[in-house]
Each structure stands twice: as structure tokens, then as C-alpha cells.
Amino acid sequence: MEKCKGRSDDMLIIRGVNVFPSQIESVLLEMSETEPHYLLIVERHGNLDTLTVQVEVQEQFFSDEVKVLQMLSKKIKANIESTLGISVTVQLVEPKSIERTAGKAKRVIDKRIL
């Protein structure tokens, strides 16, 4: 039996695929370059849902060179996509820019009007 993915009421359905925020968290935790602070933004363009993952870059992995950061962003994207099975957009953001909330963290912004 597969490991439990998370609470069913956290589940998002994006392009017909069930996505648990905790799946993304576990991908980020496995990578040493990223912090497990992330924000998922779900939008609908036309009839297509899009998922954007904002990820904070750990300070020690910040590089002066654009190509290094772009490679990191590609690696995060590939890891998340292989876990979720849908394509995502990864955005690197500044450390501590994603809101820290006491108690239950707000990880998802769903902008779709259903």
C-alpha cells in the first residue's frame, strides 16, 4: 500500500490530477538546496489549470551566476513534476518572503473561479 499522502481536504484537483501539497513539501525536503517553505498558486488560463510553485532558495545556495540559479529552478521543476505527474512552473523567491504563520500554514492560493 502506498504511503498516506495527506489530508483529503487539502487535496487540489489540477487538470484532473489529485495533488497534495504535502507531496511537494516532501520533494523540497529531500533537496538540500531548498527550504520546505513554499506557496502553491493555482490559476485558470482559459480552460487550463496552471500550478505555480514558489520556492525559497537557501541562502548558502544563492549564486551570483544566472545559469546556476536557472539550473536549480529546472531541477526543482523536474523533481516536482516526476512526483506529481503534471507540469508546474517554479519561481524562486527571496528567503523569508513566504509568510510564516503560527499554527496551520497557508500553502495554497487558489485563484480559480469554479
Binding site: V57, E59, E94, P95
Partner: peptide, 11 residues
């Protein structure tokens, strides 16, 4: 800048 939460390094 680090104190103000920026990612900074010296090159």
C-alpha cells in the same frame, strides 16, 4: 543586507 533577509554573497 543579511540582517534584512536578503540573499547576499560576495564574489
Amino acid at each position: 543586507l543579511k540582517k534584512n533577509d536578503f540573499s547576499v554573497n560576495l564574489t
